[in-house]
């Protein structure tokens, strides 16, 4: 073959461009962590509380009030019980998102991937939506999915709750809560990921935000009063969510404050992402 023919070849694309480019990004991002065995193990581990709750539900029905009393919110099949379950999944959400979400944009930045992405017919929205969906998917896998299954299971094995509550209202509440908080958490995590190039440091920022602010806010509230809990990043979501589930408020100020705070940092994260993600790297 002559040398000139070994070089550049014009590529004639066949077929049509995908209707939803964000889905191409999301599908790839969702599937690739599943190939790692430690990650699958972690995902399985995240479902252990659901199995425990299911077992407690079953035996509390069989053994009556004693186990129900001992089981606490684990044995509850009302909305508040499921809300407490989602709250308990927090550690898994934190670790899973740290693993899956931290490199989403940081790695692209480190490897100059944005130039490749945006050389295609792709908008910023497609890119962020695709990446955000990856994080959202894993949030839903360990929160909403077990709740929906447990609601159906709870309806089948217990007799206390009505079908309207168990099969419609609770799943609806859980879906709205998990989607809203999931979308917000995903955007915040993406913003953090866009702030750095090294995954390990994005993870540290995420841990500080998720876990560190909780400890710090608790210390501050000991001498500064309950309002100091506004510094607790994660608690805002559950305080705001308590309204949806009709559960007792988690903090000592109106849940509206938490809604506003969440809205504020979610918009902030989007604005930051818009400024940070550029198809062309500007070299000073």
């Amino acid at each position: 073959m002559p040398v000139y023919e070994r070089g550049y070849r014009h590529w004639e694309p066949s077929g049509r461009a995908p209707a939803a480019p964000w889905w191409v990004i999301a599908r790839r991002g969702i599937l690739s962590p599943l190939k790692r065995r430690p990650f699958l193990l972690l995902l399985l581990l995240a479902w252990v509380p659901a199995v425990v709750k299911g077992t407690i539900l079953y035996f509390s029905v069989q053994s009556g009030d004693l186990l129900k009393l001992l089981g606490g919110t684990w044995a509850d099949v009302d909305a508040a019980g499921f809300f407490a379950f989602i709250e308990r999944q927090d550690s898994f959400v934190m670790i899973l998102l740290a693993i899956v979400g931290s490199p989403l944009i940081a790695r692209d930045r480190a490897e100059n991937g944005h130039a490749l992405y945006f050389a295609r017919p792709l908008t910023l929205f497609d890119y962020v939506a695709g990446k955000g969906l990856i994080a959202l998917f894993y949030i839903l896998v360990v929160t909403l999915a077990p709740v929906l299954l447990l609601a159906i299971y709870g309806y089948l094995v217990t007799s206390g709750a009505t079908g309207f509550d168990m099969l419609l209202l609770t799943p609806l509440r859980a879906t709205v809560f998990c989607l809203l908080t999931g979308a917000s958490l995903s955007l915040v995590l993406l913003a953090l990921s866009a702030a750095g190039r090294r995954t390990v440091f994005v993870v540290l920022g995420w841990l500080l935000l998720f876990s560190g602010t909780q400890i710090i806010a608790r210390i501050l509230s000991l001498f500064g009063g309950p309002w100091m809990r506004v510094f607790d990043f994660r608690a805002q979501y559950f305080h705001a969510g308590s309204v949806l589930f009709g559960a007792s408020p988690r903090l000592d100020y109106p849940p509206l404050i938490s809604w506003l705070l969440i809205l504020g940092w979610t918009i902030g994260a989007w604005v930051f992402l818009r400024r940070r993600i550029r198809p062309v790297e500007v070299v000073s």
Binding site: R36, P38, F39, L42, S91, M94, I95, A98, I99, T199, V200, V203, L207, S211
Partner: peptide, 9 residues
Amino acid sequence: LIAALIYAF
């Protein structure tokens, strides 16, 4: 990182 996170947290 995965192992470290699982270990630490």
